[in-house]
Amino acid sequence: MSQFTHIDHKGQAHMVDVSAKAITSRTAIASASVTMKAETLEMILAGGHTKGDVLATARIAGIQAAKRTPDLIPLCHPLMLSKVSVEFEPDASLPGIRIAATCKLAGQTGVEMEALTAASVAALTLYDMCKAVDKTMLIGDIRVLEKRGGKSGDWRYGDDRSEQPSEAGSIHTAGTSVKETSHLATRTLQVRFFAELREQLKQDEIAVSLNDLESEGYPLTIDGLSQWLRQHQAELASILDRSGLMVAVNHKMADKQAVISAGDEVAFFPPVTGG
């Protein structure tokens, strides 16, 4: 039997009968990103674009697209969406815009196709709005970040990958895959230091080669990284021994056992003191 729900026992495409499924509240969040030149990003944020408000237009496009999903995806059920929202976050590290689309309904089938469509079309519209000034823009990171409700329960991007910190998963987890691909060839990770640590070290980031860690027999975990850093940069020892030291991997709080991989952004910082 096929694992694909849209293919029947004869191998033909069919729409799944969901009549018997319970009506539950369902939410899906999908992401996309548009990587662009730093000047293009600045122009969008400054609102100086000749075509008008780029983000407002892309937001409406994404919302409209979610409502048209069954017209575009052949075996997708028409749904009565109860909410569609499209959010944008400028990210200077891309540089570009990260998109998070959320779709909700009370119904019998999931809404991830609607969220993916909204995120994709918002990204396409960003491209359309800005193509006159930047033809090299790259659309990427299109994926489901989170699903809630339904028979299979809650799911978050990262749950299926091994050893991710379990509290993962707000909309901004979109972060890492662009960096992952661009760093894969060299297998480095970026280590950042904040606040007092940065001042002590007189350095805000260093690049670490995972090949070096591995060839010297250190495990690819935060603990392994800390040991390696101590060995290779003596002034780091006092920083890494600091009481209450916090660590994050790809913008999420992590612990010593957290696994690190190429393209990750690891940050060490003192206990936080905001508010």
């Binding site: 976050e89 200077a92 509290e167 707000s170 901004h172 987890t173 994050a248 709080m253 940050a267 905001g274």
Partner: peptide, 18 residues
């Protein structure tokens, strides 16, 4: 002087709000 971690700070605040 208040310093933050651009990207992560916003993400954490969103998560706390959620």
């Amino acid at each position: 002087t208040l310093e933050h971690y651009p990207g992560m700070t916003e993400q954490q605040l969103h998560q706390i709000a959620h």
